[in-house]
Nucleic acid binder design. Structure first.
Length: 439
RNA sequence: GCCCUGGUGGUGUAGGGGCUAUCAUGCGGGCCUGUCGAGCCCGCGACUCGGGUUCAAUUCCCGGCCAGGGCGCCA
């Protein structure tokens, strides 16, 4: 039998208790983390969003009925406790609560599918199957609090800098953007696809006079990749600015990244401690490496990489050994970048594209975009695509498209940088990969 | 998709052609008034699926599925 919440409301979270409050009556609500029944005294560790409080029930001080109720509690049951705060050097954190009344708000089945106290660690697959339980662990929820703080800081930063948040469609009618595989879906009597990127839409926004836009939204890629850094659904932080070039775009990006790190360090101290991360605030500006220099660095490490090639995983790793922290790679070959990337005027085999790297991980890529209609058509053709399929996009370039630049930043990969997580799945509540579609 | 390794109680593991399948944690019961990885006693609970070899397969072989690591793919 369980109790109803009634008029009980939480008065404090665990972390809000301290020994100054000695004698104060408080109501705590949370989950039974552990029970240590020593016979004449029972310790219950009550876990809530912020921390854990020891509920101490000595048989001499509380009624036999209450002691009996406490003795029957099971791990991970939902419990409300009304009791007096007691400062005690013997209690963890120096504070405990002596219960006067408890409510068992809901029971938990036993055995649990994984151990939230982590006496026995569970594998990521087991954890993802029971993600709701997994996230009860403070070290796991910390990652999501950090991600939330990061995303909030990004929005505040962009709004302060005159950007406007937009929403572009995730249901798209054409698979002709080239590059990555798309997920086909049934759209009434037609075929449609899940959007791989807001790229073409945010560029069209540049022809509207809104000048500075951003979108934070899911993108879908139907690649059969099976790595620690890829998922089939991720959140992309996308920015596009009119009357700007790649330098402006890089400036915004590095300031945004810098600001996010600062905000996380300031606002997530407890969470960073939970996961054992010492965040360093990088210096601005981030180092810039030209693609040509990257080839030399990688080759000098004994990893083969030819001009015109994209970075192999081995090349990324070699580079990551050479470059610590955040850095840009600029002046990429035009051929390995998408059609909308602006080539150098005098040296069209080079482009105004850049990637932002953190050690050996690419977290963002961007560029000055092609804003001239005819050049864009030429680039589309050169990449083996059909300009006819881009009619509605190309139209935006015929009636006054300003020069513009932008980038996309992977929210999960950035979260990996902030938290030190080695598996991108750790940074998504319910990750979607090659095999996992549930929960 | 490719290569390597693996799949044993709820969780994490040891092992291995025939024996009561190891250990920890957990779960159930008992003892215990300061635990904090509580302790002690008793009990419970498992060999990924399909096929093959064999007198006998959880163990060996083949395949599937799944996982870990690496790579590829990732405009």
């Amino acid at each position: 039998m369980t109790d109803s919440l009634g008029n009980w409301r939480r008065t404090h979270y665990s972390q809000e208790l301290d020994d100054d409050m000695d004698g104060e009556l408080v109501t705590l609500m949370g989950w039974v983390h552990e029970i240590r029944d020593l016979g004449g005294i029972i310790f219950v560790l009550l876990r809530d969003r912020n921390g854990i409080t020891q509920i101490t029930a000595p048989s001499k001080k509380i009624s036999p009925e209450l002691l009996g109720e406490i003795r029957k509690l099971r791990k991970e049951s939902v419990l409300a406790v009304r009791g007096k705060v007691q400062g005690s050097p013997k209690a963890p954190g120096g504070v405990e609560v002596i219960p006067e009344e408890i409510k068992l708000l809901n029971n938990s089945e036993q055995p649990l599918p994984l151990d939230p106290t982590e006496k026995v660690k569970a594998e990521i697959d087991t954890r993802l199957d029971s993600r709701f339980l997994d996230i009860r662990k403070h070290g796991v929820s910390a990652v999501f609090k950090i991600k939330s703080t990061m995303l909030h800081s990004v929005r505040v930063f962009l709004e302060k800098n005159g950007f406007m948040e937009v929403n572009t469609p995730k249901l798209v009618g054409s698979a002709t953007e080239g590059g990555t595989e798309l997920f086909p879906i049934t759209y009434f009597e037609r075929e449609a696809f899940l959007g791989q990127s807001p790229q073409l839409y945010k560029q069209m926004m540049m022809a509207t006079g809104l000048d500075k836009v951003y979108e934070i939204a899911p993108i879908f890629r139907a690649e059969e990749h099976d790595t620690l850094r890829h998922l089939n659904e991720v959140i992309s932080i996308d920015v596009e600015v009119a009357f700007a070039d790649q330098e402006d775009a890089m400036n915004i990006l590095e300031k945004l990244v810098h600001n996010a790190i600062k905000e996380v360090k300031e606002n997530c101290q407890a969470e960073l401690e939970d996961i054992g991360v010492e965040l360093e605030i990088p210096e601005l500006p981030f180092p810039r490496l030209e693609y040509e220099e990257v080839i030399d660095i990688v080759n000098s490490k004994g990893v083969p990489l030819r001009h015109g090639e994209d970075l192999s995983r081995a090349a990324e790793k070699a580079l990551g050994e050479h470059m610590d922290g955040y850095y840009f790679i600029t002046n990429w070959p035009s051929d390995i970048k998408p059609f909308y990337v602006m080539p150098h005027e005098d040296e069209p085999e080079k482009s105004y594209a850049f990637d932002l790297m953190y050690k050996d991980l690419e977290i963002s890529s961007g560029a000055t975009r092609v804003h001239q209609h005819d050049l864009l058509v030429e680039r589309i053709k050169k990449q083996g695509l059909n300009p006819d399929s881009f009619q509605r996009y190309l139209a935006a370039f015929e009636y006054g498209m300003p020069p513009h630049a932008g980038w996309g930043l992977g929210a999960e990969r950035f979260t990996m940088c902030l938290t030190g997580m080695k598996n991108i799945r750790e940074t998504v509540l319910f990750p979607r990969d090659r095999r996992r579609l549930t929960p």
